[in-house]
């Protein structure tokens, strides 16, 4: 049996659009993407990137909402493309989701308890009223809420932070091994984000649930994440230990990204000005070479020929997809 909880191998997802006039246009949302999450210990894996980088496609693929064009998703040793209905149901139970919009996921006509009743019924989690109530109470306690405060309320009576924590409680109750959290804090107020991030850390440490944390916000990833994958147009630009990657970014794109996060200190201002090439130029080199070529300040001819592989830098698991670091590997090999 594999040592990995979740393995994504050479995942490629291509969306085909029919253009006006009958032609076809292909958008490569994810290309030859590899990722693995170990069974033990539980960890928070961040997938970061700008819009269009493929991070939400990745979440959709893992959740089974859409299928890969090629590649494999292997959960607990089982290739999900060959899973039967029973295995799919088990998979759905073990992989839960928390979405971006804490307002849209609730039916406004029902009280909060409805959310819990649905999952308990669907998965046959408990029988009997008191057992059910106890189960809900325990799940709510994990996320720092109390049943008597929230269950009889309607969604609009709760803050975004509370709603998102209830979603975490709902996911927890099903006893999953992995939660895919797609931008869970981006629509919640900055001052309330910590309460959600804290729940993620506790579920990881106390219960042993791993997270695929999808975000465009590097600072929250920096606070809670273990491994980070930074995507750029469907490919991994850089990956590794979150603190290493953000403290010492190597890829020119990741350097720009880290540098652009506004520093909450009026004495440390952005340095220099940046410009973006036009949209159409940015997508032009999609089929060969490095995706960042049109924007890269350090581009070389070589970058156009083929997509750079992942080169290790400083520590073994810190890897960068950039030819600038090809020489380091060569140097290392000589030693």
């Amino acid at each position: 049996m594999s040592q990995m909880l979740l393995e994504i191998r050479n995942a490629t997802k291509i969306y085909t659009q029919r253009a006006l006039g009958g032609g076809k246009r292909e958008v490569v949302a994810l290309q030859d993407f590899n990722l693995s999450i170990p069974r033990q210990p539980a960890s928070i894996i961040t997938i970061a990137g700008e819009s269009g980088s493929g991070k939400t496609t990745l979440a959709q693929v893992v959740l089974g909402f859409t299928h890969l064009t090629s590649g494999q998703i292997i959960f607990d040793g089982q290739d999900m493309s060959t899973a039967d209905a029973r295995q799919m149901k088990a998979y759905r139970r073990q992989v839960q989701a928390v979405f971006q919009d804490p307002f849209g996921v609730y039916n406004p006509f029902y009280r909060v308890e409805h959310v819990f009743n649905i999952v308990i019924n669907n998965f046959g989690l408990s029988s009997g009223k008191s057992a059910r109530r106890e189960m809900i109470e325990q799940a709510l306690n994990i996320v720092g809420l109390r049943g008597e405060d929230v269950l009889r309320k309607y969604p609009h009576q709760l803050s975004g932070g509370q709603r998102q924590r209830i979603m975490m409680a709902r996911a927890y109750m099903i006893n999953p091994r992995l939660i895919v959290a797609d931008e869970p804090v981006s629509m919640v107020d900055a001052s309330l984000r910590a309460s959600i991030l804290d729940v993620m850390i506790r579920l990881k440490e106390e219960i042993g649930i791993s997270f695929l944390y999808i975000t465009h916000d590097l600072s929250t990833a920096y606070q809670i994440g273990d491994q980070i994958y930074i995507l750029y147009q469907g490919t991994i630009a850089e990956k590794g230990n979150t603190v290493n990657v953000i403290d010492r970014p190597h890829h020119p794109y990741v350097q720009l990204l880290v540098d652009s996060v506004p520093v909450p200190d009026p004495n440390v201002k952005w340095k220099g000005e940046i410009f973006l090439p036009a949209e159409e130029e940015m997508r032009s080199s999609v089929h060969s070479g490095c995706r960042f070529y049109p924007r890269c300040p350090q581009r070389m001819d070589r970058c156009l020929q083929a997509q750079p592989p992942l080169y290790p830098v400083d520590t073994r698991d810190h890897q960068v997809s950039c030819y600038l670091y090809a020489s380091e590997v060569a140097a290392e090999a000589k030693m």
């Binding site: 720092g144 107020d189 309460s195």
Partner: peptide, 8 residues
Amino acid sequence: KPLKITEG
């Protein structure tokens, strides 16, 4: 740093 948790 440890997260600073607050309610709304």
